[in-house]
Computed example of a mutant assay.
Amino acid sequence: MTTHAPVLPLWLCEGCDRPWPCATRRADLLAERERVPLAYYLSLCLIAAVQDMGWAPVDVLRRRFIGWLP
């Protein structure tokens, strides 16, 4: 199991202290899940992050959570 889990409410990576999902977690997620369930999971994370980080621009969070999906 990865140590690159999100630390809430700032959604930072537990393993590398970068914005979650970090590059390592993105690679893990792509390897672990099929595209549609992954998009659904990250959309739920996006919704939670928007609630946790109301000060962050929504478009920035959208790119961070789902904008990198192939």
Rank of each mutant, 00 (worst) to 15 (best):
residue 69 L to R: 01
residue 31 A to D: 10
residue 30 L to A: 11
residue 37 P to S: 08
residue 29 L to R: 09
residue 31 A to T: 08
residue 20 W to D: 05
residue 60 V to Y: 03
residue 47 I to P: 04
residue 43 S to R: 10
residue 65 F to A: 04
residue 9 P to S: 14
residue 27 A to E: 08
residue 9 P to E: 15
residue 7 V to L: 04
residue 62 R to C: 13
residue 18 R to T: 14
residue 5 A to P: 13
residue 51 Q to S: 13
residue 12 L to W: 06
residue 38 L to G: 09
residue 21 P to L: 03
residue 36 V to G: 04
residue 1 M to T: 15
residue 39 A to F: 01
residue 15 G to E: 00
residue 10 L to T: 14
residue 20 W to N: 05
residue 67 G to C: 10
residue 60 V to H: 09
residue 30 L to W: 03
residue 52 D to M: 00
residue 51 Q to K: 00
residue 40 Y to N: 14
residue 52 D to V: 08
residue 13 C to L: 00
residue 52 D to C: 14
residue 17 D to T: 15
residue 43 S to C: 13
residue 41 Y to L: 10
residue 63 R to K: 08
residue 39 A to G: 11
residue 41 Y to G: 12
residue 56 A to T: 14
residue 53 M to Q: 15
residue 48 A to Q: 15
residue 49 A to D: 10
residue 55 W to N: 09
residue 14 E to V: 00
residue 41 Y to S: 11
residue 48 A to C: 09
residue 22 C to L: 01
residue 66 I to S: 09
residue 66 I to F: 00
residue 51 Q to A: 11
residue 62 R to Y: 06
residue 37 P to V: 08
residue 37 P to M: 03
residue 23 A to Q: 14
residue 54 G to W: 02
residue 64 R to T: 03
residue 52 D to E: 11
residue 27 A to T: 12
residue 41 Y to Q: 12
residue 10 L to W: 01
residue 11 W to E: 07
residue 13 C to F: 00
residue 48 A to H: 07
residue 38 L to Y: 01
residue 39 A to H: 05
residue 46 L to W: 00
residue 19 P to A: 09
residue 26 R to V: 08
residue 18 R to M: 14
residue 7 V to A: 01
residue 39 A to R: 08
residue 25 R to D: 15
residue 10 L to V: 15
residue 55 W to E: 14
